[in-house]
Design a protein around this nucleic acid. Structure first.
Lengths: 195, 195
DNA sequence: CGATTAACTTGATTTAGGTCACGATAATGA
DNA sequence: TCATTATCGTGACCTAAATCAAGTTAATCG
């Protein structure tokens, strides 16, 4: 029997509401634990993203590959984050993204149809969704602004401020790509910032 | 008496649910019509965004100003879109953004506290919010990807594909800024793409 | 453990797009 | 209506960051 406590705590904390025993039961039945080893894929480009995953342990990156084979990291995800290409997940269209485990990964996953049920039947779950989409909206507003109006160096400083733990946890070339930089440029920025 | 029909139609259509007479009454009481003339501000940097506005007529831009006085357009909004800095609106923190009317603007506006009420009491309204946040999440994902992995030219082509009416409606320098480009660069791209 | 592969650094060179300057149109307003 | 102020186009030049290349350090695995 998988331990759902951390998941329940997360939902209750972020939503500000309690889960009933029935709620918990429903979640336990329909969220399936899934393990991926480092470098395995949660989602591959061209596939429909049928599952949304809640990260219990580990980390992942969401990235695209352009015509020249150049990889582009759009998102780095760690514990207590949700994993999905939302466009593909909501609209059931083939995804343009890849999602790959950067460390051994444990997720709790469920389908679009099930999520609809949770939203209908579990008040804490739909309250959670509202909070998350608020947060997501705010975060993407910020990231957009960073992308367009900050220099490479400012974006790096911004990352240090907002996600200092990323620096320890992810290889530098992933961070570079996440910031929209070449690995060489990030290396040089770090060198200079030691002054 | 202000004509709310277009607003009601919008809510019903996007949510897939009907509004009762009571619902409509509640909305009419708490959404206040507001008119802004071209160049007037809906929100100024440093202020808390106390109102969210639904655009009935006209258009607006959301932008920041950096230390060098350089303006940066993050969003262009037209009829049937919502106007707010969501971070400031939800968290009641001072905004880093400006929202300015690009054409004479008519909005229906309401406060955070009222929106909470609508979400609680009007099923169509909360269904609408879910759809909008899905759409918004998808749009942000796309815009993020465009910002990071497309060239200037690709971003422009993308805009032509997705929002062709923007080109007729907004001055070219606004479009340039929205795409993260200098006006000169956009002018040159347009020149080249005539081949 | 040593061998292979991945991650990082540093230098030289290139390039996309920005900045500056100025003239041409077009829009706006007294 | 003319004057003023935005907007747009084009050329010359500059710069931040990418690319290419090659060596170094660190991680991974049989």
């Amino acid at each position: 029997m998988y331990n759902f406590e951390a998941f329940f705590d997360y939902i209750q904390e972020i939503s500000g509401k309690l889960l009933s025993e029935d709620d918990k039961h429903l979640l336990m039945v329909h969220f399936k634990p899934k393990k991926l080893r480092k470098r395995q894929y949660f989602l591959q480009e061209g596939d429909v993203c049928r599952y949304i995953g809640f990260i219990v342990k580990g980390s992942a990156r969401t990235f695209t590959v352009d015509e020249k084979g150049h990889e582009n990291v759009l998102k780095l995800s760690v514990e207590n984050w949700w994993l999905a290409d939302f466009e593909s997940f909501y609209l059931l269209t083939p995804s343009r993204f890849n999602i790959e485990a950067l460390e051994n990964l444990e997720v709790l996953q469920s389908t679009n149809a099930q999520i609809e049920e949770f939203l209908k039947n579990i008040p804490a779950f739909s309250a959670m969704q509202n909070v998350i989409s608020q947060n997501y909206t705010i975060a993407s507003q910020k990231r957009m602004q960073a992308a367009f109006s900050y220099t490479a160096e400012e974006r790096y400083e911004d990352l240090i401020r907002n996600y200092p733990h990323f620096l320890k946890r992810f290889p530098q070339n992933m961070i570079a790509s996440y910031l929209g930089l070449s690995p060489e440029t990030l290396s040089r920025i770090r060198k200079n910032s030691f002054k």
